[in-house]
């Protein structure tokens, strides 16, 4: 019985590729990445404020029109700025945000191990 998921998985996969289901998941994934403009810290997925509903309709329509996620996000950023995306894009302005922690971590670890080796 445990392996009955295999044919089901295959079927869903095929279905996924052609049906509206992908569009729905795509839509929800996008909703979770777009900030609700008038609420505090919520995504439009979580909010049912007027503007959030409008944006959801807009995103659904754009998906129907065949736009990619990138294009849709690009459109929103063009209108509202990076602020509307829950996750800041990687660009010059955000290099420090994205890369500073990992660089600082690496430097620290190198210092710890090198000092220890020198003393050992």
């Amino acid at each position: 019985m445990k392996f009955s998921f295999v044919p089901i998985l295959v079927c869903t996969y095929i279905l996924l590729c052609f049906s509206a289901l992908t569009e729905e998941t795509r839509a929800i994934n996008l909703f979770k990445e777009v900030r609700c403009l008038v609420c505090q810290g919520q995504t439009i997925h979580e909010s049912n404020a007027e503007i959030a509903e409008d944006l959801k309709t807009l995103i659904r329509e754009k998906i129907d029109e065949g736009e990619t996620d990138k294009e849709i996000k690009g459109f929103l950023v063009e209108k509202y700025g990076d602020w509307i995306l829950m996750t800041p894009p990687v660009k010059e302005l955000t290099y420090v945000l994205w890369f500073a922690p990992i660089i600082i971590m690496a430097i620290g670890l190198i210092v710890i191990f090198r000092r220890k080796i020198a003393k050992a």
């Binding site: 990445e33 990076d82 509307i84 829950m86 800041p88 302005l93 994205w98």
Partner: peptide, 20 residues
Amino acid sequence: LYNQSLTVGPQYYAISITPI
């Protein structure tokens, strides 16, 4: 500094903290 607004949501923390 740049008069630009950003949102730093949960995804940023997830991505940055996971490897650590």
